[in-house]
Design a binder for these strands. Sequence first.
DNA 1: CGTTATGTTGATAGCCGTCAACATACGTGG
DNA 2: CCACGTATGTTGACGGCTATCAACATAACG
Lengths: 245, 245
Amino acid sequence: MPASVVRNLIPLQCNNCVIRHRAICGTLNGDDLTRINAIARQKKYRTGETIFYEGDEVNYLGNVVSGVVKLGKLLPDGRQQIVGLQFASDFLGRAFKGKATCQAEAATDVELCIFPRKPFESLLSDIHDLEDQLFANTLDELDAARDWLLLLGRQSAREKVAKFLLMIARRIPNIGCGSGDGEDADAICFDLPLSRADMADFLGLTIETVSRQITRLKTDELIDVEQNRTITVSSVSRLEAASGQ
Amino acid sequence: MPASVVRNLIPLQCNNCVIRHRAICGTLNGDDLTRINAIARQKKYRTGETIFYEGDEVNYLGNVVSGVVKLGKLLPDGRQQIVGLQFASDFLGRAFKGKATCQAEAATDVELCIFPRKPFESLLSDIHDLEDQLFANTLDELDAARDWLLLLGRQSAREKVAKFLLMIARRIPNIGCGSGDGEDADAICFDLPLSRADMADFLGLTIETVSRQITRLKTDELIDVEQNRTITVSSVSRLEAASGQ
DNA sequence: CGTTATGTTGATAGCCGTCAACATACGTGG
DNA sequence: CCACGTATGTTGACGGCTATCAACATAACG
């Protein structure tokens, strides 16, 4: 991860880790946990910082502890597509291949729990459970990528934005909101971790189209928007209907 | 694979297997090879037959021996997207999860070398090399899916068709063609394994747009088309330029 | 308080989808 | 072998969705 400054290298305590039960290290027992703890380090990035570029030799892998990481790909002429979003407890990096196949950038402030590649790959060989977890994780990512193929290839701008909001709502901690004034029971509130530009690059749209679709969803009273980034989904079921399933 | 008739269940001889050196069993030694050989069976499908549907319990996994398999996803209203193509030596099916996450259909006549799920998963646990191979395979598929996200999200119809033809040219056995009459040295000839409708579903386009783009590539003398399915790429480099990279 | 980044809205254009007609290839039965 | 129906592919006319260009509004920041 050459492009950025390491802000913090305090060894972590897996015992206190907020994401451990959901991350690939979640099933490790005391002994194996000690071994992975021994090589784990914390690393922080600020919003907008690049974690690595496509083609870089990346000597670390790790888990996202907090924040959101964008995985992106570029065309020679500058067109860009976000090909994945990694949230807290997601794994970042590709085992058995140092060369990054896409760019990684901090969409928000990000904390990573990183492992140097070589010792981590040794652990993968030694601890069968760990490789199984990572494998399962990769299969889930493949499923997610294929869901997104369907979205990009066959859905309208409105459906894309609706589905994106639902996806974020599921993966981002919700905010208590709209309480007390008789709102719908299945209302959900959250802060968007992505700018309109990032949303556009994720959905294969332009900034303007994303903005217009959000305005339309607001006009149609499917969502409410405060300060651009704070979204309240008034009715999840109606937004799901608008998302095409 | 419930929807179809098993045409052939003769045990295979891995020793004579044409795809073994490229498939996940390629690195296995004599003993392990015997074990996987013992559970392998051949299965054949005709063009257009469904191998399994999304949501099916699939009790087999396996390699594509010959032909091309389409992996597809459907929206409730019938819109369709092909999310992957599996060629000879590619692995078909998802380990550790019986329920299929997409539909599989024979795009051409297809031969599979299948393994019943349970014994195969046992082998995966026992033979570390095998799991590593399958894991590496899955990572490659994830990379391919992400490349396709960029294509679907950010490239024009012309670029999509050009890139598709180049992808097929790389994965399908080429035909000797155009020889002797002074054609370009880097000319390539092959038969399309997909109909225009399949290409459309793979590229997120309509049949008509695919057809028009092929006509345009022909008019621009980047390719030549005989009998709809036989493509000659006159100049690979010019087609690459048209594909956006 | 000025400057820059981010987001919204409007007018217009163009790419691709839709609808339709036609052409060609393929398969079946007479 | 031909007639017929069906599947597949092409081409044209037209329309709509989304991109582009532009102006403006608002927020963030030093």
